[in-house]
Design a protein around this nucleic acid. Structure first.
Lengths: 202, 202
DNA sequence: AGGCAATCTAGTCAGTGTCAAGTTCGAGCG
DNA sequence: CGCTCGAACTTGACACTGACTAGATTGCCT
């Protein structure tokens, strides 16, 4: 009952008003709760109070819906990375993004569920890749050799692995009650052993 | 007449002989090819030449099958990690395991598809966790403080992230034609900036 | 006001997971 | 040897899902 946009759901008009958005947010709820495999177009239609085939009109099919979510996720990620001033900060933001948008994150990296050749997805992905590349070269604008590329892969792997394990509750015992972002800062400090700017405590 | 082991499908006896194993390997094939979401119990039954409900008799339901695969995966991982003499070597073996058993790896870290309370899964998982812990403390048997734990999380995150991105073809451009294991060795060298294979000073 | 395209409904079909009941087979025991 | 008994497998059914189609409704644009 949240769509402040339009009270169309309660008032039974023929047109929903913003079905696309309603289906998307409902899908994100379901995915965050029970994973992408628990997602059913018919259930989403039921939640939105429309007929079972209405969502298909907006997304084509199941893969289309997931693809739209992934594309939105890459856009959000690009915005979240923004203008990180170094690789470590980019990693922190990467982890923060995964925690704030777990459903998007999960779908983005489940290639089997997506249509890889989708145009919108491609551009969104490229956008995020640009943001990542910017963070890699931000440390030393002149350095574009293999070392920089390797550092980028290392930072991405570390951040991605940490975020993935975190969302899968594989690190519950290890991080305890600590703020995951602070833990990741410590990990990143190990990777870039230049102590760099010290880690500010929040 | 009991060549029931392998050509059981051709020989149409009422009992398959080794249906459990047959379904498992068929499932691994499907998952490696098209991901876990493309898995259908009925299709597996068809491949094994048995009736559509036969697999359920061995695994209960879909989640049971995936759980059995995950448990097997954790067993294989524990064996693969074996007695790695340091964290870096353990990471290399972790990545190697993911590349040699992509289906297992994928299922192991998809909590939404598994029954988390399964007994066999729990023990297998604990076994793998022990192997990991052993690798963490192998560097300095006396050190069990937060530093060692952090190093373990860092190594696990790096290896897991690298393996995940690799399997998702997210690093195709970055690693090029290089041997992924060698690339990971370089990443691990960045993390444990001691250059040597051993003597990692904390 | 009229027409048009987007939006949504309703009906259908093949495919799936899961359950309940029957059938076949082999091992163990009299 | 014959018997039972339980595990492995089959058969049939039900509810549900994704996908497709044709038709109804509506908002918008000229």
């Amino acid at each position: 009952m949240s769509p402040a946009k339009s009270p169309a759901a309660s008032q039974r008009s023929y047109h929903h008003g913003d079905l696309r958005r309603a289906v998307l947010t409902a899908a994100l709820d379901v995915i965050a709760a029970d994973g992408p495999s628990a997602l059913s177009l018919r259930d989403l239609a039921r939640r939105a109070g429309v007929s079972h085939a209405a969502p298909a009109h907006h997304f084509g099919d199941r893969a289309g819906l997931l693809t739209a979510i992934a594309a939105e996720g890459y856009g959000l990620l690009a915005r979240a990375l923004g203008d990180a001033r170094d690789l470590r900060e980019a990693g922190v933001r990467y982890v923060r993004f995964a925690r704030e948008h777990p459903a998007h994150f999960q779908v983005m990296f489940s290639p089997g569920l997506l249509r890889g050749d989708d145009l919108e997805l491609g551009t969104a992905r490229a956008l995020a890749a640009d943001a990542l590349r910017a963070a890699v070269t931000a440390v030393d604008p002149g350095d574009r050799g293999p070392d920089a590329r390797l550092a980028g892969v290392a930072a991405w792997s570390l951040a991605h692995g940490f975020a993935t394990l975190l969302l899968g509750h594989n690190l519950d015992g290890a991080v305890g009650d600590d703020d995951p972002e602070e833990v990741f800062r410590a990990l990143a400090a190990m990777l870039f052993h230049s102590a760099g700017p010290d880690t500010p405590r929040t």
